[in-house]
């Protein structure tokens, strides 16, 4: 586990392979050092709210991006999204759903809950890498996020 104080991107992904591939793609864009990976929704909310195992994390450090999978054990992506967007303190954190699902219902529901982006994971690695790199590039470099 890397230092949790300088995290800009929180990757919420239950699949270690997808996580590894995501991190590999981000590494190419040199964003990897600012990424932290949690494996389910409960852990994600603990990290954001500095609770549970992340109680000692400094809440002043705001995330610039949350990359959120939908299908996860315990609390799934839509639950995390709902929680984040209904909380005044976390509402402004950009969340991009990155999932295998391109089901219309999931897409509609995500936007209804206030998601900032929705990306279906490409099967082909090149496309996958490109998609992840684009996301990182845009939200970390192009987009102006609210600073603490």
């Amino acid at each position: 586990m890397k230092a949790i104080e300088n995290v800009e991107v929180l990757l919420v992904e239950d699949s270690p392979h997808d996580a590894e591939m995501t991190m590999r793609a981000l590494k190419k864009g040199n964003f990897l050092n600012k990424l932290y990976w949690v494996q389910d929704g409960v852990e994600a909310l603990d990290f954001v709210h500095c609770t549970g195992v992340y109680a000692e994390r400094e809440p002043e450090h705001r995330l610039k991006l949350m990359i959120l999978d939908l299908k996860m054990p315990r609390l799934d992506g839509l639950d995390v999204l709902r929680e984040m967007k209904s909380d005044e303190r976390t509402r402004s954190i950009p969340i991009v759903i990155m999932t295998s699902s391109n089901q219309d219902r999931d897409i509609m529901e995500s936007y209804r809950l206030g998601v900032n982006g929705y990306v279906t994971k490409p099967v082909q690695f090149a496309a996958f890498t490109e998609a992840v790199a684009c996301i990182g590039m845009y939200w970390l470099l192009v987009n102006e996020s609210r600073t603490s």
Binding site: S15, K121, V123
Partner: peptide, 16 residues
């Protein structure tokens, strides 16, 4: 949907 994840992994790792 569920088949995509392992295929993606295989492809990803071969590229790696």
């Amino acid at each position: 949907h569920d088949l995509r994840a392992p295929v993606r992994a295989v492809l990803g790792y071969t590229v790696a």
